[in-house]
Amino acid sequence: MPADMPARTPAGTSADIADVRRFRERLGLPGFVDVHTHFMPHQVLRKVWGYFDALGPLTGGIEWPIRYRHEEDERAALLREFGVRAFTAMLYPHKPGMARWLNEWAAGFARRTPDCLHTSTFFPEAGAEEYVAEALDAGARVFKAHVQVGAYDPADPLLDRTWGLLAEAGTPVVVHCGSGPAPGKHTGPGPVGRVLARHPRLRLVVAHLGMPEYEDFLGLAERYAEVRLDTTMAFTGFGERLAAFPRRALPRLADLGDKVLLGSDFPNIPYPYGEQLHALERLGLGDAWLRSVCHDNGAKLFGIR
């Protein structure tokens, strides 16, 4: 597509756009900062979509149809139509030797997509600290780690210097470390808790509010000043079917309002983008809390004016 030609938004999304726009206007938001969206190389994303297409057996038979299965430029255009001011390219390796290549792709994507927060990743392997340092030098603003898919212990000694480097840089790391939708050998609060005990200044963002170990991960956010949580899929009808958030923990979530960030999992969601927003609204924690979660907390974390 020529550089001067705007990307078109996908057909059939006008109702989704209108719904999100009404939500944004009601709250008087300048837009959204979504810290959990996925952009990755075409061949990798197709494999991820294939995983979700076959996910029923791993989710107790609950199907997971991808709602926004569009081309890359259409997906970015749709986020802009929603009013998302900044988003991420959450990508992650599932084996050694893959992270550096993903980081090279993500750097190129960030260059051609100014509203994407330059995202990078890593894996427990020799050389991880070096390519993470290279990514930071290249302008990476957020990292993604997926303990479940990578099937690794985040406290692996091969990652210790990498975690230390990221803690020193103050760069946020969005980590899928909860045991949803299916548990892994190293998921849950224990392994990542060992990382935080060693690197207490690490800016860790727990994906999916730590689903399903919500209360344990709330505890980590209460204990460590730089630990945050993203809302990805939490409280939606689909997310509640997978793992309901305990309502007794809502006061704790309200108290952590400055440490909760909007995440959506776009495009890999089986419902309209606005469902995540309305699910947060239904909690009844107030408009000020909603504004902080949907925009202000992310804007502050990433210095977005």
Rank of each mutant, 00 (worst) to 15 (best):
R161W: 00
L78M: 10
R111Y: 10
M211D: 13
L91I: 11
A225N: 01
A169V: 07
M5L: 15
A151Y: 05
R203S: 13
Y51S: 11
V35K: 01
R100I: 06
G139K: 03
P267R: 14
T232E: 00
G31W: 09
D156W: 01
G178T: 11
F235V: 06
K259Q: 14
D265A: 09
P267E: 14
M40S: 07
R75W: 03
F123C: 06
L261D: 02
V132C: 08
G127H: 06
P267K: 14
A77M: 11
G219T: 07
A145I: 13
T162V: 13
G31K: 09
A54S: 13
L256R: 02
K95I: 05
V260K: 01
G237K: 00
L202W: 01
P191N: 07
N103D: 13
P212V: 12
P57C: 07
G170C: 05
E74L: 02
W289Q: 01
A138M: 10
Y51M: 13
P191Y: 07
L58R: 11
T113C: 03
G31F: 07
P6E: 14
G178Y: 01
T121K: 07
H176N: 11
L136W: 00
L218M: 05
P65T: 12
T59C: 11
L159K: 01
E281N: 01
W163T: 06
M233S: 11
E168G: 06
A167R: 00
K185N: 12
A249W: 00
P172Q: 01
G50C: 08
L165S: 06
S14Y: 03
M90E: 12
L27E: 01
A86W: 04
G284M: 04
D153V: 08
M90V: 13
C294F: 15
T236F: 03
G97H: 08
V149M: 09
V205R: 03
M90S: 12
W105E: 07
T171L: 07
A221G: 05
A110K: 05
L220P: 09
L220R: 06
E215A: 09
P30R: 09
A11F: 06
P65V: 12
H118T: 10
D34H: 09
R291F: 06
A197R: 14
A279D: 00
I66G: 03
A207Y: 03
N103I: 11
M98G: 08
A299G: 03
C177M: 05
L218W: 00
